[in-house]
């Protein structure tokens, strides 16, 4: 063991610390981006032509904004929005500061996924709900979100897994976490076992998310 992982064994507490930091960044930004992305995704679906609250100007604006945010590469986004991060958090380095770019980087992506998931909800069911006198708000909550739930969970898994990837990038420029360990210790000091173990922990996290998600999807699917 010691021969295989000479450096890792001396860094147990750092690894625990880093894993917790990664979990923290992922969880908090997932919740914030989840709320924002879900909201934006719903707005995209209902404002689009033929939607429940069809509104061409709003749709165009939201659609373009989503595309714009999505086209900025994350590593550049980190740098570009650092003034905003500084304004919101008071610093641009550290785990908490990384939440700003993480949320901004992931929520437009999530919104698009939510939009696609909700567009898969059978339009006939939406029409049936309208014919039964449901209000737009009731249709969003009782039809779109309920009928689209399995797909929403699926896209949420994909998003969280992407998000774990993004936290490592943020880590590389000072946010801490497993990415930070892998790059600034493992890579920079040629301690390959550190990089490898950091990667393995990330893999475990990804698999855990995938498994939990699949289990949830199974529970809410009834066909």
């Amino acid at each position: 063991m010691a021969a295989l992982l000479p450096n890792v064994l001396q860094m147990k507490s750092e690894f625990i610390q880093a894993t917790l930091a990664t979990l923290y960044m992922t969880a908090v930004s997932a919740i914030i981006a989840g709320v924002l992305g879900l909201g934006l995704g719903i707005l995209l679906v209902v404002t689009q032509p033929g939607g429940l609250l069809s509104d061409q100007p709003s749709y165009q604006l939201l659609d373009k904004a989503t595309n714009l945010l999505r086209s900025v590469p994350f590593i550049i986004l980190l740098a570009v929005i650092s003034p905003l991060t500084n304004y919101l958090i008071g610093t641009t380095v550290g785990t908490t500061a990384s939440l700003v770019p993480l949320v901004l980087g992931i929520f437009p992506f999530y919104a698009r996924q939510v939009q696609n998931a909700l567009l898969d909800v059978d339009q006939g069911i939406v029409e049936a709900a309208q014919s039964m006198g449901s209000s737009p708000l009731a249709i969003i909550f009782r039809v779109y979100l309920k009928e689209g739930l399995p797909d929403l969970i699926r896209v949420s898994i994909v998003t969280v897994i992407s998000l774990i990837g993004l936290t490592t990038m943020a880590g590389a420029i000072g946010a801490g976490g497993l990415g930070d360990i892998a790059i600034s210790i493992g890579y920079a000091r040629f301690e390959n076992d550190v990089t490898l173990v950091a990667m393995l922990i990330i893999l475990v996290l990804v698999f855990a998310v995938q498994l939990a998600g699949d289990w949830l999807v199974k529970r809410v699917t009834h066909d």
Binding site: I125, E127, G133, K146, E147, V220
Partner: peptide, 30 residues
């Protein structure tokens, strides 16, 4: 208008039931 629509029931070629709700849940929906 939504109240008025409740006076007019509608059924469809493809049934348009909600797969996420039970039979009872579907009937209760309105």
């Amino acid at each position: 208008l939504r109240q008025a629509r409740r006076q007019v029931g509608m059924i469809f070629q493809h049934f348009n039931l909600m797969g996420s709700r039970t039979v009872l849940g579907n009937v209760i929906y309105p």
